[in-house]
């Protein structure tokens, strides 16, 4: 059976290619039909903030890549409740349908996956 992989994205979206490159790992794995999960935590939750306008920085929007996750088979999307609250985001208004997990649930989540990559 294929090994499951959890990708933890901790990078804010517009500070270089890091957030996009973390997403690319997920999209590449999805194309191979691997069991993948993606967790947004720390500044990574800013990737899910609504109404962002990266065009003002002449940057390509991440939204298309984020929206593509379910289409690439990456259906398990999670967000860290602590990180969301700490950054004043409303979990109900995030740009993707995600499961909001507290610290104990996050520990259990990481435990369930065969492999974890934190970027």
């Amino acid at each position: 059976m294929a090994k499951s992989l959890l990708i933890i994205s901790r990078q804010a979206p517009w500070s270089g290619p890091s957030a996009r490159e973390a997403l690319d790992i997920a999209l590449a794995g999805g194309a191979f039909d691997l069991p993948l999960g993606m967790l947004f935590m720390d500044d990574g939750v800013f990737q899910l903030a609504a109404a962002q306008q990266p065009a003002s920085l002449q940057l390509k929007d991440l939204a298309a890549n984020l929206q593509a996750l379910p289409m690439f088979g990456v259906e398990k999307l999670f967000v860290c409740a602590h990180s969301v609250a700490e950054r004043g985001l409303d979990p109900a208004s995030l740009s993707l349908p995600v499961e909001v997990l507290d610290d104990a649930a996050l520990a259990a989540l990481i435990g369930r996956y065969d492999q974890v990559v934190t970027l």
Partner: peptide, 8 residues
């Protein structure tokens, strides 16, 4: 990147 997944 498929090579990363395959190796993993």
């Amino acid at each position: 990147l498929g090579q990363l997944h395959e190796a993993a």
